[in-house]
Each structure stands twice: as C-alpha cells, then as structure tokens.
Simulated scan of single mutants.
Amino acid sequence: MNRTMTSLLALGLGVAAYQFAQRNGLMNNRAMKKMRRRVAKAIR
C-alpha cells in the first residue's frame, strides 16, 4: 500500500471516529483540537 492510500484510509477512519464521538458526545473540545491537529499532520 502506498503513502497516499494509507493517509486516505487514516483520514477516513479519523472522520468516522470524529463523527461517532461527536454524535455520542464522547469528546470535549480539547480532545477535538488535539485530534484535528493529528489528522492534519497525517495528511502532510
């Protein structure tokens, strides 16, 4: 699996987890920011 494929997969998983957490109110704002930063780093 190449790099773009891997990052796309990771992004997809991240988005799914993000939406799931939002729907269930699992994450507070601090965790959201941290996760967003991690996803941004993964894309680069």
Rank of each mutant, 00 (worst) to 15 (best):
N28E: 05
R23E: 15
R44E: 13
A42W: 06
I43S: 12
M1W: 10
T4S: 11
L9T: 01
G12Y: 01
G12L: 01
A10S: 02
M32G: 09
R37Q: 09
R36A: 08
M5Y: 12
L8I: 01
N28G: 13
L11H: 02
N29K: 09
Q22Y: 15
F20V: 14
T4F: 10
G25R: 10
L11N: 03
G14I: 00
K34G: 07
L9Y: 05
K34P: 03
N28T: 07
Y18L: 07
M27D: 06
N2K: 08
V39K: 03
A21M: 05
R30E: 14
A21T: 06
L11S: 04
L13C: 05
V39Q: 04
G25N: 14
N24I: 01
R3V: 02
V15I: 11
Q19P: 03
R3G: 03
M1F: 08
A31R: 08
N2H: 10
K34C: 12
L8Y: 11
Y18R: 02
F20G: 12
N2I: 05
Q22P: 04
G14W: 02
K41F: 13
A16G: 00
K41R: 07
M32C: 14
L26N: 10
T6C: 14
V39D: 04
R44P: 08
N28Q: 06
N2F: 06
A10M: 03
M32V: 08
A31G: 09
N29T: 13
L11M: 04
T6P: 03
R38A: 14
G25L: 03
R3Q: 12
M1C: 07
K33C: 10
N2M: 05
R30C: 06
T4Y: 14
S7I: 07
R30S: 08
T6K: 12
M5W: 08
T4V: 12
A21D: 05
Q19M: 11
T4N: 11
V39W: 03
G14E: 00
G12A: 02
Y18V: 04
M5V: 11
L8G: 15
G25D: 14
M1T: 09
G14M: 00
L8H: 11
R38N: 06
A31S: 13
N24Q: 10
R36V: 14
A42G: 09
M32N: 15
Y18Q: 03
R3W: 06
L26V: 11
R37N: 11
A31W: 06
Y18P: 05
L8P: 00
N28R: 08
G25K: 13
R38M: 06
G12V: 03
Y18N: 00
K34H: 09
G14F: 01
L8K: 07
L11G: 07
A31V: 14
A17L: 09
M5C: 08
R44L: 10
L13V: 03
R38T: 09
Y18W: 12
R23N: 10
M1R: 11
G12N: 00
K41L: 10
M35R: 08
R30T: 15
T6N: 11
L11Y: 04
G12H: 00
Y18H: 05
R44C: 10
T4D: 11
A16Q: 02
R36W: 12
S7L: 13
M32F: 08
T6Y: 13
L13R: 00
L11E: 01
L8E: 10
R38C: 00
L9G: 07
R37I: 13
N24K: 15
R38W: 05
R23W: 06
R23C: 02
